[in-house]
């Protein structure tokens, strides 16, 4: 996995796994690889991977079952919430950037729509 060294590694690993859960690459109830295997997969430190997992466990997205390993939650509402949360974060970023260019809400909506339409034509 490619890491941006300016951003904490545990945070990037967490986002990477969240992404896999939201896209369905990791299914609800699916068992995660062992911590060391995950560390090898993403080329990071075992402790850093453990920290990422601990935060996902605290957030309720991953469930740790004693002696059996870590599993993606079966509660799909939690996954839906997670998706909403990540989408909101992305939108907030775009909104803030466009707002800083003195665009009104209507203009932001119009420019997003325009962008999507044009992108469709370019295909």
């Amino acid at each position: 996995m490619y890491f941006d060294d300016k951003i904490p590694i545990y945070y990037q690993i967490k986002n990477h796994i969240y992404h896999e859960i939201i896209t369905g690459a990791l299914q609800p109830g699916e068992k995660l690889p062992s911590v060391r295997q995950l560390a090898v997969d993403v080329t990071a430190n075992v402790n850093t991977v453990q920290r990422a997992l601990s935060e996902m466990i605290a957030a309720g997205i991953i469930e740790s079952k004693r002696g059996r390993g870590n599993f993606v939650t079966m509660e799909t509402t939690k996954i839906t919430d997670l998706k909403t949360q990540l989408v909101t974060t992305q939108l907030a970023h775009v909104y803030q950037q466009l707002h800083a260019l003195n665009l009104s809400d209507e203009e932001i909506l119009a420019s997003v729509q325009h962008y999507i339409e044009r992108k469709g034509q370019a295909k």
């Binding site: 941006d4 060294d5 300016k6 951003i7 904490p8 590694i9 545990y10 945070y11 850093t48 920290r51």
Partner: peptide
Amino acid sequence: QADEVREEFHIGIEA
């Protein structure tokens, strides 16, 4: 701590 440096200064370890 490496991640503490990233969190605190928003720069990479090399920087």
